[in-house]
Design a protein around this nucleic acid. Structure first.
Length: 430
RNA sequence: UCCGGAGUAGCUCAAUGGUAGAGCGGGUGGCUGUUAACCACUAGGCUGGGGGUUCGAGUCCCUCCUCCGGAGCCA
């Protein structure tokens, strides 16, 4: 089927072109129809004059409804009055299917209604732009690791145990045994890093927590690098180079989509390494006298993160949290064993945490003690302990949440719009 | 799970305890340059469910359901 993408319509100026798409909107003026057609790459105004087309075609203009699939053929020409600067003077039109009354109108809708029609909502220009930026971010993630000596190692989705013992996991019946949907591929990436040196995984992760906020999904995508012979400082170097690369890539390749989203790119232009780094103690100092309800020794809450990240134009790396509030596999700071060698990256503009990671405990005895201290069963971790029995080395890694990153870069406050089909506490469909 | 908010036409929302309405969308008609076009006409309702107060309830009370925002937890 010979066709021209709307995004390439300028190249056909003065020539005849066929555009395959869907009717976005239409206006009439008696003997004249303006059909606004979208094809996923852009929006084109097609003009139908009664004198230029067969009678049936002109009648079809009256019958065609919003989101009907249409194929229009005609002469492309420049016209300042047309959105996009070009329009198609229609010679012929084929109606592939007349859409039933389309639920999503050009007027406003509530988020619940739009989410119920997510499969159709994806057709709107903003949602399409978000999909494309998400794609670009994922490509950038892969390119960054692929060109820096990393090997993609896929982690399993079914896991036999609640690996960190903290989060609520989704339980499934696995041939009569209990199995859980993964909350992180990290432990497996540690095994992979001991094999290939630098490994990463990218896949869905699941949390059964009954969270109802703009930052939470029950199913989300995470990219997790893990590197042998890397300490916390090196881990932070890696994280900031990685995030800076992603932002640069999107700014360079998805200018058009950012424009559709009306994203102010000025704050993104400022994102380059190095990022500010501060310790938990320094961050806690900033919260003194604030009314966020923060108490020293506990993890930061959402208002705390907003306050801390709000003081910087770049993402900020907060390191060395109290070991008591972090997972068992975090290595303790030799200079202060009450702290863990971990790091969170808080994105600016009130976005908050997009990365969590750190250096892992590599000493066998210390790790065994940590598992016991956290009240976790030893048996499921025997394979993990093997990594400390056979050639243990310092190693570090982190996990980046794709949806929060997409939300930050797109300027979309709620993560439910950053994934094609979000899974939330109250949403399993479509 | 806790705290707050909302359920009225297909959608977005109005309506002092006293006749349920508008805009958009749909339908019909009009217009040769429209820009979320415009103009005229028109159809469309178990006011989330159940119970109560009242002469009278969309409105007040109780209860349940659904959804939204936030907290905790996290990416």
């Amino acid at each position: 089927m010979k066709q021209t993408a709307v995004s390439k319509i300028a190249e056909m100026n003065g020539k005849e072109a066929t555009v395959n798409g869907w009717l976005y909107n239409k206006r009439s003026s008696g003997k004249l129809w303006f059909l606004i057609i979208r094809d996923g790459t852009g929006i084109l105004q097609a003009v139908v004059s009664k004198n230029d087309v067969a009678a049936g075609v002109f009648l079809d203009c009256d019958r065609v409804t919003q989101e009907s699939s249409v194929q229009v053929t005609g002469l492309v020409h420049e016209d300042r009055r047309s959105p996009g600067g070009y329009e198609l003077q229609v010679r012929d039109m084929r109606l592939l299917q007349i859409a039933q009354e389309y639920p999503i109108t050009p007027k406003e809708h509530g988020s619940a209604f739009l989410m119920d029609h997510r499969h159709l909502w994806l057709r709107s220009s903003k949602q399409t732009a978000i999909l494309r930026i998400r794609h670009e971010i994922i490509r950038a993630c892969r390119d960054f690791f692929d060109s820096n000596g990393f090997t993609l190692v896929d982690a399993p989705i079914f896991t036999p145990n609640a690996c960190e013992g903290t989060s609520t996991l989704f339980e499934t019946d696995y041939f009569g045994e209990k199995a859980y949907l993964t909350q992180s591929g990290q432990l497996y990436m540690e095994a992979a890093a001991m094999a290939v040196g630098k490994a990463y995984c990218f896949g869905p992760t699941f949390r059964a927590e009954k969270s109802k906020t703009r930052r939470h999904l029950t199913e989300f995508w995470m990219i997790e690098p893990e590197v042998a012979y890397l300490d916390l400082d090196g881990d932070m170097d890696l994280a900031e180079a990685f995030v800076a690369y992603i932002v640069r890539r999107v700014l360079k390749s998805r200018e058009q989509e950012l424009k559709v989203l009306e994203r102010d790119t000025a704050p993104l232009e400022k994102i380059s390494a190095p990022f500010p780094r501060l310790s938990y103690d320094e961050a806690a100092e900033m919260l003194k006298g604030q009314s966020t309800g923060f108490t020293y020794g506990s993890d930061f809450g959402a208002p705390d993160e907003t306050l801390i990240s709000g003081k910087f134009e770049k993402p900020v790396l907060v390191h060395r949290y109290p070991a008591a509030v972090k997972a068992f596999y975090m290595k303790k700071d030799p200079k202060d064993p009450s702290k863990a060698l971990c790091v969170d990256m808080l994105a600016p503009e009130g976005v908050g945490e997009i990365i969590g990671g750190g250096q892992r405990e590599d000493d066998y005895d210390t790790l065994v003690a940590a598992i016991q201290k956290h009240g976790l069963p030893m048996e499921p971790f025997e394979w993990y302990l093997d990594l400390r029995r056979y050639g243990s080395v310092p190693h570090s890694g982190f996990g980046l949440g794709i949806e929060r990153t997409v939300g930050w870069i797109c300027g979309i406050p709620h993560v439910r719009e950053t994934i094609p089909f979000p899974r939330l506490m109250h949403r399993l469909t479509p």
